[in-house]
């Protein structure tokens, strides 16, 4: 057992209030740790998490991710549903424009746990897409959430569990004196790409997204539009908002979205339904995903610091399993 001297509750400083930091903080607080969460930015999700799609797509991700991503994420939908409101469990629909039908076949070969749906089946799932596509794949076991609302709900939960969260924290050291002179037993570093110089192999992968508001289209689940050049997903959120994302560029630039990326994202929305042509562009966003060379999120221990990083495009999908691992390290438990 790793605990503070003379104290049954380990003192844990969690750095970074993105999805990895908040899930770790909440998991630790639930297990009884004395958690202080410090965020360098001005709110939770000040980094890449804010731009996430929020798809809990264990089976779809198998198209390009190694099997452990699917395996480790099977608990994810249940975890989120048990911790934040409004987690949808309506599955995922995978579609392709008619001339790219071969992409559907390829996607199907590399994934499982789906049903093949025809035009009528697509219309039954998403009435607004009736007659627009002939063939698709439906992954019924998947879910989605609104990342920004989910992060806020985790922050509230942390506080309800007796933890604290502060913003505008320093990059190192402890803000204030939360433990009255005592040092934390553990530091859990969830600072994403900011830890690039501390973690070997960590790099940033730029992503760009658009938030649209369209009153004429209603979707119940994320739709993935397959395309040989520009695969895009469209995730419905409340108030007729749709998140369209996301590009994958091997760059760490946070410069504004390029015209080309914007055209690609908006074209995909327009191909899905022409009514998106009248949509209001509410927001464009750019983030840098932290990633290791295998693009799989990892938990690593260096002395008394636990790093949760390399979330790549799997932040919401894999944070619950990685946070559980952090809990095992802090409280003692099965090895990795």
């Amino acid at each position: 057992m790793m605990k503070g001297e003379g104290d049954a509750r380990p003192r844990v400083l969690v750095r970074g209030a993105g999805v990895a930091g908040l899930t770790s903080a909440v998991t630790l607080a639930e297990r009884g740790a004395d958690v202080v969460l410090q965020e360098i930015g001005n709110r939770e999700g000040a980094g890449a998490s804010w731009m996430a799609g929020g798809m809990l797509a264990s089976w779809c991700e198998a198209e390009s991710a190694p099997p452990e991503v699917t395996r480790d994420s099977l608990e994810s939908v249940d975890w989120w549903a048990g911790h934040v409101p409004d987690v949808a469990r309506n599955g995922t629909l995978v579609l392709a424009p008619p001339r790219d039908g071969a992409e559907i076949a390829r996607f199907a070969r590399r994934t499982s746990h789906f049903q093949t749906v025809d035009g009528a089946g697509i219309g039954a799932l998403e009435p607004d897409l009736e007659g627009r596509f002939d063939k698709g794949l439906f992954f019924p076991e998947e879910g989605h959430l609104d990342p920004r609302k989910a992060l806020g709900a985790l922050r509230d939960r942390l506080v309800a569990l007796g933890g604290t969260m502060s913003v505008h924290a320093p990059a190192d050291g402890v803000q204030g004196d939360p433990w009255h002179g005592a040092r934390p037993d553990w530091v859990v570093d969830c600072t994403g790409i900011a830890a690039e110089n501390q973690l070997t192999g960590l790099r940033g992968v730029r992503g760009e997204m658009v938030l649209l508001r369209c009153h004429e289209v209603t979707l119940s689940r994320p739709v993935r539009m397959l395309h040989p050049r520009i695969p895009v997903y469209i995730v419905p959120r409340e108030d007729h908002l749709f998140m369209v994302g996301a590009t994958m560029v091997e760059s760490e630039s946070l410069a504004s979205m390029t015209l080309r990326s914007m055209v690609e994202l908006l074209t995909a929305a327009y191909v899905l339904h022409p009514a998106f042509g009248e949509a209001e562009i509410v927001e464009t966003g750019v983030g840098v995903r932290p990633a290791y060379p295998d693009n799989v999120p990892a938990v690593t221990v260096h002395g008394r610091t636990v790093y949760v990083n390399g979330m790549y495009r799997h932040g919401f999908l894999l944070s619950p399993s990685r946070a559980r691992r952090v809990g095992e390290i802090v409280f003692g438990g099965p090895a990795a």
């Binding site: 560029v249 760059s251 630039s253």
Partner: peptide, 16 residues
């Protein structure tokens, strides 16, 4: 081209 948005922003991938 795509990797070089910004001056040296693609550095991590180029190193790989």
């Amino acid at each position: 081209r795509r990797e070089s948005i910004g001056s040296r922003a693609g550095q991590a991938f180029w190193s790989l």
